[in-house]
Amino acid sequence: MNAKVQASKKLSLEQKKRLLEEMLFARRFEERCYEAYVERKIGGFLHLYSGEEACAHGVIEAANPGSDYVLTSYRDHVHAIKCGVDPKAVMAELYAKVTGCCKGLGGSMHIFGVENRFMGGYALVGGPFPLAAGIAKGIQMKKGKEICICFLGDAANNQGTFHESLNMAKLWNLPVLYVCENNLYGIGTRIDRSTAVVDQYKRVSAYNIPSTQVDGQDVEIVYEAAVEAVEHVRSGKGPYFLELMTYRYRGHSMSDSNAYRPKSEERIWSDRDPIIMLRDRLVEAKEMTIEDYKKMDNQILDQIESEVIKFAEESPEPPLEMLEKYVLVENDPWVKGGRGGVN
């Protein structure tokens, strides 16, 4: 696959500029989803990633997107796009159109882009932990050079699957990187009200898995930590756990008003916005002007409207025949005993 040159530990200027654009695109994409949901173009549960952009972007940038395997929870649009899934196909999926990446069968919580090795968004908290270990096992069996990266929230770590998977991953030396997006809440329950040990990276030490906790709002810091983590896993040293401290701007899902969060806390985090921080650094370094940024923003807004939304709006719905199409694999000869079967 498109193996990249060994990632350097620091982001290049060119990477920073591209990441700024990608993160801004992600933000505008998610905020447009919000509007589309209010307009009832998107249904079901919708979990937005606004505020957490540096996590997915910093980590996946340090890996080989499209080649390394990635999976996550229901908060999955941005991870998919960063892995290379076409934003138009993601939006069309949210619009439940047949041109969506899952043909309108999956929805927001179930974005899949297997061609880009985005192995899915899953709606059951904790479900992806063992799947990631399993994908890593598959890589190992096939003697691949890829790794598997599993992004999950802080509250997910209270599922048994977290501990079971860490144990197996270490025991069998599996090439899996667990990334904890610690946004301090599981729906409306603050982490210290659900979790005895608040620092998630500490919980991992019991399994002899190396782990670190870094600022998840600063994409440069995330990237640097992720380069080390990815190197560790890819070099055959087994699993790694990376905890990123972050914050979601919106409610847990569209049906959550955030009433349980103090406004003062929200302000502390929005003052450290991952996009604005990177932008200001680039402006300060005279690598771009505020006008350049505004132009970029306008281009993105225009692209989302004239390409992404347009595509989703104009695409057809899946035909009724599709209802029963993917329940089981079609025409598998073995259900009849193989090609030379008795029948």
């Binding site: 069968l105 009724l320 209802l323």
Partner: peptide, 14 residues
């Protein structure tokens, strides 16, 4: 119908 439930509204209703 004996299927996992689809996201698309028309299919879901069906």
């Amino acid at each position: 119908v004996n299927v996992p439930i689809p996201y698309n509204h028309s299919l879901e209703k069906a």
